[in-house]
Design a protein around this nucleic acid. Structure first.
Lengths: 149, 149
DNA sequence: CCGAATTTGTAGCCTCGACTACATTTTGGT
DNA sequence: ACCAAAATGTAGTCGAGGCTACAAATTCGG
């Protein structure tokens, strides 16, 4: 956290609001993280198996099928996926676009982690948690860093 | 949420279960992220102002005081903080130790981001979300990377 | 030192993501 | 073609984390 701005001398400064905003950002990112993961996995399943079934999704995430179905319902509510009863899940154009963005970002994060010396398997696992919190500015920096070496 | 660690890791764990485990890890990290942030902020307030009051904590995080008080109650349940009615919050030794670890990790992440070219203000904001998902292996790598350049 | 403002605490409600248990539909083997 | 197994869907519960509204304690200004 940003304790660079010392509060001792000036207890109530604009930095405080900025800090609150940062925390809010980090928190709300978490609410979309699940949807991003689902969309990415569904996209993968569609590409590799031709279909995405709730049970497969559930198994991949290590959750119960009921949980997967509920989250898929949320995806549908958000306009990212479609499905008809007992017929598998598909992505809307919006869903596909999101999947693509998420995929690229994930790859960039893994590459960056590996580039600074994180072991490949750790990088893969860490990226899973990190990727949802990386800003566009950071992604640009990652790209430049990876290109210029 | 995500309080239950499922999909136990075994040597013969198939890749699918490994993936499920990674996701589970990322999810459960979220559940501790809030506690880490609170502990760090309380530690800062205690150091800079001599006391940590629920209202200050709430304002810094941009949440209602009721939410802050509930989370502080959880901190107490987890053995990280203590408080008596109307008398501010204090950290247990465990809480202080956690705050110290979190502070160091945050600094490392910010330094790493800056080192790979992320603008300082973005780095500070991004670190807020990222820091809770960085493994020890990655932190070691970050340290080496920062040292060797 | 007393009443008003501030702080702190409590209660009740909401959504999300997880679970289990049960019901229903589809699919596959013989 | 049939029945059993697998997949899918539904219902109800729980804790975390958020909110508002209200109640009680503390602190401050006059």
């Amino acid at each position: 956290m940003a304790k660079q701005e010392r509060a001792a001398a000036r207890p109530d400064m604009p930095t405080e609001a900025a800090q609150a905003h940062r925390f809010g950002k980090a928190r709300s990112a978490q609410s979309t993280a699940l949807l991003e993961d689902y969309v990415e996995l569904i996209s993968d399943l569609l590409a590799s198996a031709g279909e995405a079934r709730p049970t497969d999704v559930a198994r991949r995430f290590g959750v119960s099928h009921a949980t997967a179905i509920k989250t898929i319902a949320r995806l549908k509510r958000e306009g990212l996926a479609t499905s008809k009863p007992y017929r598998g899940v598909f992505l809307t154009p919006d869903g596909e676009a999101l999947a693509e963005r998420v995929r690229n970002r994930h790859r960039l994060v893994v590459d960056l982690l590996v580039a600074v010396g994180v072991p490949a398997d750790s990088a893969e696992a860490d990226a899973e948690g990190i990727e949802h919190h990386v800003s566009d500015a950071a992604l640009d920096a990652f790209r430049d860093f990876l290109a210029g070496r």
